[in-house]
Amino acid sequence: MKSEISYSKAQLVILVSSRVLIGWYCLYEGMIKWINPSWSAFAFLNDSQGWLAPFFHSFAANPTSLSVVNFLNIYGLIAIGLGLILGLFTRMATVSGIVLIFLYFLSHPALINTSYMLPSGESAMWVNKNLIFVFLLLILLVYPTGDRIGLDRLLFNRFKN
């Protein structure tokens, strides 16, 4: 299971730290939604702009799809966060994170002359924090560390014939 790449100590420390920090960020985003019973993705979805806006608006319009989106966001973020911090099912957590955050990026692209109701606290043109997040996770995907520092090390070692 272990990847073939060999890391220097410094490389490993930086990669694992990045993984834990991103995991922390996602876990908190999920937990804060989880403890707030009235949280809903409704406003975020409705605030969507750009060429995919109708797609995101349609999720907000239907109570069933909205509750699915809410559920996936809350528990998805928590699971991704725990996975990245603990190095548990790291690959799946990383890929899910990439998909989820890329959806955030697509729903709120940093287009020229576009402003959003929900404050993001950033000034951005085309490139924004979500896009950088996606690429950070892509780095973690091609330089995996869960099988060295993380529970994957134990998990996948144990079940190897």
Binding site: L86, R148, R153
Partner: peptide, 19 residues
């Protein structure tokens, strides 16, 4: 394959304190 070394356990649970 059966038993984990001390090293494995340390590295496996290294990030647990973060939680």
């Amino acid at each position: 394959k059966q038993a984990f070394s001390r090293r494995d356990l340390l590295k496996g649970f290294a990030t647990l304190p973060v939680i």
